[in-house]
């Protein structure tokens, strides 16, 4: 009806096509809200891992256990491999847990990657300088703290799990305590560990707060605790791990004489 002449001055917002809906639960992962949900759940799992990993590592302070003739940390390592034996053969449950961890990790990274791409496609930078009000360093550096953590994990696995590349020269499978001490007495390694722990804690600080939002765990009755809880867990991880690193670096924790 209307006699419209197309004009260079007309505007319409660019629209992305809706993807064809996959069956549940994959359909959830097709949307950004669903991806954030996956990111939050996997993040929760990964934070759980980080906390337990740290608890395990704190055994480095127990050091040598004469009754067992071994370092407590080594005993703990063996315990993990022996989990639920004989229900599972030696080391199998640990591998199942590791696979779960790897899956969570992969999903966490993939969702982060695809959301980042979506966001940069949706965003247009301002010409003038932004004056942030609520966005803090943690929230705005998630991408970078995430990438640092990822790079660090590769380093960490090579250094202490696989014993290759940057690992210390006398690395030996199963001698967890000695490997750890051997690595961290090297200042360069210690500094890498410190940077990584700081980045991870910052990542977790925003991550936990963000998780509550993404999962919709919001209730005015307990919302006031959410910031504190994310701060608390991040601080716990920071302090716990830094203590280990600094104690070894400074020699407060070392090898048992004569072993």
């Amino acid at each position: 009806m209307a006699t419209t002449t197309p004009s260079r001055n007309s505007t319409s917002p660019p629209m992305r096509p809706k993807p064809k809906q996959l069956p549940f639960p994959l359909s959830l992962y097709q949307t950004a809200v669903g991806k954030k949900w996956v990111m939050a759940l996997t993040g929760l799992g990964l934070v759980g891992f980080v906390v337990f990993h740290m608890l395990g590592n704190l055994k480095v302070f127990i050091g040598w256990v004469p009754e067992e003739g071994a370092y407590d940390l080594d005993i703990y390592g063996e315990f993990l491999r022996e989990l639920l034996v004989p229900l599972f053969p030696h080391g199998v449950l640990l591998w199942i847990l590791r696979l779960g961890l790897i899956t969570m990790f992969a999903l966490h990274i993939h969702s982060a990657y695809s959301l980042t791409r979506l966001n940069s496609a949706s965003n247009q930078p301002y010409a003038a300088k932004r004056d942030w009000i609520a966005a803090n360093f943690a929230s705005r550096s998630m991408r970078w703290t995430g990438v640092i953590t990822l790079l660090y994990i590769v380093f960490h696995l090579a250094d202490l799990t696989w014993g290759v590349g940057p690992a210390y020269s006398d690395w030996e499978y199963g001698r967890v305590h000695e490997n750890l001490v051997g690595s961290l007495v090297r200042p360069a390694a210690a500094i890498i560990y410190i940077i990584a722990v700081v980045a991870l804690s910052i990542h977790i600080f925003h991550g936990i707060w963000s998780m509550f939002q993404s999962l919709g765990w919001s209730n005015p009755n307990y919302d006031w605790m959410r910031r504190g809880l994310s701060m608390g867990i991040a601080a716990l991880i920071l302090v716990g791990n830094l203590t280990i690193i600094l104690s070894i670096w400074t020699g407060a924790v070392g090898l048992e004489a004569g072993q």
Binding site: R16, K18, V33, L115, L118, S122, W132, A135
Partner: peptide
């Protein structure tokens, strides 16, 4: 509404700038 929103807009990373503005 969520799915249409995502056809146009980015995703929330929980900065909280929106509510402040």
């Amino acid at each position: 509404m969520v799915e249409t929103m995502e056809q146009y807009f980015g995703s929330c990373t929980n900065h909280g700038e929106c509510s402040e503005a």
